[in-house]
């Protein structure tokens, strides 16, 4: 997948390493295997168990029902009948894409602003990075109570001061509220990566471009953006990994609601195990979540990689 585009040594560099490659293969494996085994045990082994649970009916708080084998019934129900799950897939997709897009665009904008020399740049950068340090639970608490609350929230005060209709954001726009909350947190992350990309860009290339007459938008479009492509890919890759697992914000701010409007796949799995005690269904949903995450990550990245490669060519 994407791995090929980012930081894997290409053929040239591996031929260099070839010279120092030690004949003592055990040393290589000795260094590598502990981590690989550790990761396998802590992530893959439980997943195999999840697969095992997913073909059983197991209601945690009803041991008298036993744990009978049900085959693919849990999967069948989730895919064909469970409208909540189907909706959650869509919601996850929407929320993830929006969060990545919004934070990427804002992050890019901020990075460009910060990539200039001006008085107090260090302080400004510190302020802009700050949301990245805030734990998701605090983030959601602050937004929910101070900004989005329909009675005492600052947005409410702003709206009523402007004589606009009162809006109950978390009820009327739960998805967008989550997007706003999470984007606030992830923008600095994107900004940090892109800023470093900008600062790593050689001034010579820019000078050359300016002499060629590229300025403003043209310079940005034809010089900056292509050079940033790999950084943008990285933003999207890392962002997707974390945003697909978004949980704290939803748990605190909307609890998946109202109704099931902001219920994402991870949140639905959480509810199924935590609130409904349905281990079998939760396991099946967990398996589907893994499949879903793999598809979304692979698909999205492939698309982006192609776009950027073409743009660069």
């Amino acid at each position: 997948m994407s791995a090929s585009t980012i930081s894997v040594p290409d053929a040239a560099s591996s031929s260099v390493t070839g010279r120092i490659r030690s004949p003592r293969i055990p040393a290589r494996l000795l260094l590598l295997l502990p981590a690989i085994i550790y990761l396998a045990v802590l992530t893959q082994a439980p997943f195999i168990l999840t697969l095992w649970y997913s073909v059983h009916k197991w209601i945690l708080d009803q041991p008298d029902l036993g744990r009978p084998w049900v085959g693919i019934e849990n999967f069948k129900y989730a895919i064909t009948q469970d409208t909540v799950f189907q909706q959650a897939v869509l919601t996850t997709l929407i929320i993830t894409v929006l969060i990545i897009a919004v934070s990427l665009l804002l992050g890019l904008g901020f990075a460009l602003l910060l990539n200039r020399k001006f008085f107090g740049r260090g302080v400004v950068r510190a302020l802009m990075i700050a949301p990245f340090f805030v734990m998701p639970t605090v983030n959601a608490v602050v937004w929910k109570n101070f900004f989005l609350d329909p009675i005492i929230g600052l947005f409410d005060w702003l709206l009523t001061s402007l004589h606009l209709a009162r809006v109950d954001f978390l009820t009327s726009y739960p998805k967008l509220s989550i997007v706003a909350i999470a984007s606030w947190q992830w923008t600095p992350f994107m900004m940090l990566i892109l800023l470093a990309g900008l600062q790593g860009m050689s001034e010579e290339v820019r000078e050359a471009a300016r002499i060629d007459g590229a300025a403003g938008w043209a310079e940005f479009r034809h010089i900056t953006l292509p050079l940033l492509a790999r950084y943008i890919e990285l933003c999207i890759l890392l962002g997707t990994i974390y945003v697909l697992n978004l949980f704290g914000e939803i748990r605190v701010a909307t609890q998946g609601g109202p109704g099931t409007e902001s219920t994402t796949v991870p949140y639905y799995v959480y509810q199924t195990i935590h609130d409904y005690n349905d281990v079998g269904s939760a396991a099946a949903l967990g398996v589907l979540a893994v499949v879903f995450a793999s598809l979304i990550a692979a698909g999205l990245l492939r698309l982006l990689v192609r776009t950027f490669r073409e743009g660069q060519a």
Binding site: F47, V265, Y270
Partner: peptide
């Protein structure tokens, strides 16, 4: 190497909810 690195990253792709029960 490439495959190993991809695999390492893919362990992060897996939603934690997929393994929380076990």
């Amino acid at each position: 190497t490439k495959g190993t690195l991809t695999w390492v990253l893919s362990t992060k792709m897996m939603p934690i909810v997929g393994v929380i029960v076990p």
